[in-house]
């Protein structure tokens, strides 16, 4: 994505070898499996740029994915990376973070993975304020398995398992994250590469349960089936339909097939992380007998 501006609709899925993101990738594993026009690669470009700008110590960063097209992100990043089971990236990451609190642990996965099969883990990790950064690529569908209905599929959209159009109410992910207690909640689209990069950088430097939703096109399965054009058309829609509303009430940011896409940083709050709460509490209750955990 080198040279991308807000107005460019650059979705080049294969970065050139001199691209600044390359040092962050496992080069021998490229080409990746993602379809041309898929939005996942754009999110990875922004993520690696953020790593660059944040001067993040890469040896202290671990990435955990579940299963799905987005779940393959962990395998391409040249970091300590874990590709776990469907829906369970968050509890794996919880164990990893608690075992080794010096690590900055990022969960990177799809909307089906994190909110259908993994929804309960998301709620509880947010409630506990587990010190994790959770990135959800929301393409409104189950990409990996061929375009089935997801908990995010907008009303009316056709999916292979909703062949007559979706009649289930979709979840609004920022609202869920907010209600469950996340300390940082933001939404961007793959049109917003600058904002997204900044958002990643910001979130990497914070503590607590941080949630970033990224709307991204799945041209192969979601767009084609719903006659929504290709990846570029969708990014054009993101541009036209998006309104930046930082601090928006998360009750008001639901999504449909048409209408406004509210983006921005919705929630920023301070709460003690699970580990800090444990250390403070047990220190108070047990005094000198308590072996403070994690340095």
């Amino acid at each position: 994505m080198s040279g991308t501006t807000n107005d460019d609709l650059d979705l080049s899925h294969l970065p050139p070898m001199d691209n600044p993101v390359m040092p962050y990738l496992r080069k021998e594993r490229i080409p990746h499996i993602w379809c041309p026009g898929c939005g996942i690669g754009t999110t990875v470009n922004c993520f690696t740029r953020a790593l660059d700008e944040a001067a993040q110590d890469l040896d202290r960063l671990a990435i955990v994915s579940g299963i799905g097209c987005t779940g393959r992100v962990a395998g391409y990043l040249n970091l300590d990376s874990f590709h776990t089971t469907h829906g369970r990236a968050i509890p794996f990451a919880t164990g990893l973070k608690l075992a080794n609190p010096d690590l900055n642990v990022v969960v990177y996965s799809g909307d089906g993975d994190l909110f259908a099969i993994g929804g309960n883990h998301f709620l509880h990790a947010a409630r506990r304020n587990m010190d994790l950064m959770v990135v959800c690529v929301n393409n409104f569908t189950y990409g990996m398995t061929g375009g089935q209905v997801a908990p995010t599929t907008p009303l009316g959209a056709s999916q292979t398992t909703m062949p007559y159009g979706n009649f289930e109410n979709p979840a609004s992910l920022p609202f869920l994250a907010d209600a469950a207690g996340a300390t940082y909640v933001a939404r961007w689209t793959v049109f917003h590469v600058r904002q997204l990069t900044r958002c990643f950088k910001d979130a990497l430097g914070r503590k607590g349960f941080r949630f970033i939703e990224i709307l991204a096109p799945c041209p192969t399965l979601f767009l084609r089936r719903n006659r929504l054009g290709d990846g570029v058309d969708m990014v054009r829609q993101y541009k036209e339909r998006s309104v930046v509303r930082n601090g928006a009430d998360t009750k008001e940011v639901g999504l449909g097939l048409a209408g406004e896409i509210v983006v921005g940083t919705f929630v920023e709050r301070e709460r003690p992380t699970w580990l800090d709460a444990m250390n403070d509490h047990l220190g108070k209750v047990l005094g000198d007998r308590y072996q403070r955990y994690g340095g």
Partner: peptide
């Protein structure tokens, strides 16, 4: 010196330990 966490279910418990092992 160590910790116990009660997870939300056994799926979570049985994979949290694996994250911790790799930690």
């Amino acid at each position: 010196g160590g910790l116990f966490i009660q997870m939300e279910d056994e799926l979570a418990a049985s994979i949290a330990i694996q994250g911790a092992a790799w930690g």
